[in-house]
Simulated assay, not measured.
Amino acid sequence: MKALIVYYSQTGNTQKAARKIRDGLKAAGWEVYVSLLKNTKAEDLEDYDLVGIGSPVWYEMTPNMRLFVESLPDQKGKPAFCFCTHGTMPDLYFPLAVPRLMQKGFTVLGWDKWYGNCSIQIFPEPYYTAGHPDEKDLEDAFAFGKKMGEMGAAYCRGENVELPKSPMPNMMPMHANAAIDHLGGFHNVHGKLVRDPEKCLYPKCHICIDHCTMGYNDYSCDPPKYGSEGNCCDDRHGCTYCEMLCPTGAIHPEIPYEQAAPAGQDHGSELFCMVLEKAEKEGKFRRLIPFDKVGTKTPFYSVHNTHPRLKPLSTKADNE
Rank of each mutant, 00 (worst) to 15 (best):
T11R: 09
V108E: 01
K192D: 03
D112V: 05
G12Q: 10
P126H: 03
Y33F: 13
D140P: 00
N117T: 08
K311A: 14
Y226G: 04
Y128D: 04
T88E: 09
F106N: 01
D235W: 12
D292K: 10
M65G: 02
V108H: 03
I21K: 01
P247H: 06
A42D: 05
C84Q: 06
L92T: 03
N39S: 11
H252Y: 10
G238E: 08
A317Q: 08
Y226T: 08
D181E: 09
L4R: 13
I21F: 03
N319L: 08
Y202A: 12
P90G: 07
D137C: 14
A42P: 06
E258H: 07
Y301R: 10
D112A: 15
C156F: 09
P56K: 00
C232G: 14
S55R: 01
Y226K: 05
S9C: 10
A178Y: 05
V98W: 02
K16T: 09
M148I: 08
M214F: 06
E43L: 04
G249A: 06
I122N: 10
M151F: 08
S71I: 07
R22G: 03
R286V: 15
N160V: 10
C221S: 12
Y48N: 04
C221Q: 13
V32F: 03
R236L: 04
L271Q: 14
K146C: 05
K297T: 15
G238T: 15
W114L: 15
V303A: 13
L4C: 15
G158F: 10
C221P: 04
S302T: 09
K113V: 02
L183R: 11
F291D: 06
Y33G: 04
I5L: 15
P90A: 00
Y127L: 03
S314Q: 11
G268A: 15
H252Q: 00
T240W: 01
D47G: 11
F186R: 11
P133V: 11
Y8N: 07
F291P: 00
F291A: 15
P308Q: 04
A130C: 14
E135H: 12
K2S: 04
A18D: 02
N13V: 04
K311Q: 13
L109C: 12
L276K: 02
L138W: 00
I207D: 04
A42Q: 09
C212N: 00
T296Y: 07
C84V: 09
D49T: 11
S35H: 11
V51T: 09
M65D: 02
E320Y: 05
G185M: 12
W114Q: 14
S9P: 01
Y257A: 01
E258Y: 01
L45I: 14
L109R: 05
G230Q: 07
R309C: 02
E243P: 00
K76N: 13
G110P: 06
Q10S: 07
G191W: 00
P308N: 05
K38F: 01
R195V: 08
L4V: 13
P99M: 08
D140M: 12
C84N: 15
K316Y: 06
Q10V: 13
A250K: 01
K2N: 07
I120L: 02
P224A: 12
I5K: 03
F94S: 00
I21W: 02
H237P: 01
Y8S: 13
C200P: 02
T306Q: 13
S166I: 08
R309F: 01
I255P: 00
F142R: 03
Q259K: 14
R287G: 09
